[in-house]
Simulated scan of single mutants.
Amino acid sequence: MRNANILISGASIAGPALAHWLIRYGFTVTVVEKAPALRLGGQAVDFKGETHRTVLARMGILDDVRRLQTGGTDQEIVDANGRTLAIMPGEFTGGDLEITRGDLSRLLYEKTAPACEYVFGDSITSLTETPTGVHVTFERSSPRTFDLVVGADGIHSAVRRVAFGPESDYVRHLGHYYALVDLDEDFGPAAMMYNEPGRMVAIGGPKAPAFFVFASDRLDYDRYDAGQQKDILARVYAGVGWQVPAVMKAVHRAGDVYLDSISQVRIDRYSKGRVVLLGDSAYGNTLGGFGTGLAVVGAYVLAGELAAAGGDHHAAFAEYERQLRGYAKIAKNGNAGPFLAPTTSAGIRMRNWIFKYRFLLALMMKMGDKLATDIELKTY
């Protein structure tokens, strides 16, 4: 088989899912990950509809995902006095199958690690294509040459930046930010969510111990500096009512915080020569609700096309893009920011009505299911 030695950047979901299939088809796989170890925290993610379930079943992990699923959690939307205004049902946020990102990442890693080389604490710094491969340099490791390189390293993809151009050319800020914080304190057994215009905080819910969404222009900060991220949250949520002052004190003491923009990738091609993008790096929309499903379906198609083409990357990449381009329109339609953190009191009330009048909720969920299944899966 041609082009059998493949480097994948990113060890979250898309990268290990692709590694799973490539190993099965006889490719040699190396995965490089910037984090020093597997990231086991993070929010809950979900799968929707027959297409997602079919791919998980063909991977042989559907039963494992079911075993690890959270089950979904109803969330109370409350006012400043703690009175319930509406209930956001677990099936709305959790899809058919909900699992924490950390559990899914660990599951995929454990399935692939025995037959795949993982390199943690490193990242790609340059890619130089030759007639027969790609010469790769790293921050820490010695240079190596691979037949193909896959960028499965998220919306802030290093591979996309190196191979295609600066992030500003491809990533569009959608006007909101979100944050996930692991808290030591327990704020009660119920999952609750509170809004003021342009700001939302949820505690004990399905996404994280503390989950924030707020409207903002683009912010300048270090995504790897927890102190800076806590300072931003403290500034944005100063003066907010309900239990937020106590939550913010807990945030200040927390060790793990993740803050990022709600953004969308817009790129006119998924591949360039021997380099191809997968998952959020190619068609991501953070907090859009379909990212994990897109990642596993994209991995299935990309690996299957490489195998079907006998490693011919020109044919495989073209067919992968043909199939995923239409399906990935899901990412263009989703933006949870204005829904979770409306910028006006009227917008908050209108959002709450959706959960009071279930026919509106049913229409939204039906549309989501239709988008999640809008691809005809090949059998490779």
Rank of each mutant, 00 (worst) to 15 (best):
E321F: 12
T112F: 08
F317A: 07
G151P: 05
V240K: 07
D312Q: 03
G284W: 09
P245F: 15
V236L: 06
S9I: 03
I124A: 06
L233A: 13
A307G: 09
N335Q: 13
T70R: 10
P36F: 13
G198W: 00
H252E: 12
V244H: 01
E321G: 09
M59P: 08
P16Q: 08
T344L: 07
D369N: 12
N5T: 06
F290T: 03
F290A: 08
A44P: 07
D64Q: 08
A246H: 15
A163H: 04
D122H: 15
Y270A: 14
N195S: 05
R106T: 04
D217R: 15
G298H: 14
I13L: 14
I77P: 01
W21V: 02
D184I: 12
D225K: 11
G82D: 09
A4H: 01
D260L: 14
T93Y: 15
L108F: 01
L85D: 04
V150C: 07
A234P: 03
L183G: 15
R218G: 10
A307L: 04
A316V: 02
L18T: 00
T70A: 11
M365D: 07
G227F: 10
D96W: 11
N335W: 09
W242R: 08
R253W: 04
G49I: 00
T132R: 10
I8M: 04
G337W: 03
L7K: 03
A307Y: 07
P338E: 04
V45M: 15
G311N: 00
L302N: 08
K48I: 03
R106H: 12
V159D: 06
P166F: 09
A303Y: 05
G188W: 02
F355S: 00
V29G: 01
G291Q: 06
Y270N: 11
D312Y: 01
E139W: 08
A163M: 05
A44I: 12
T93H: 13
G241T: 05
G204E: 00
F290I: 02
P114W: 11
L259F: 11
M88G: 04
H20W: 13
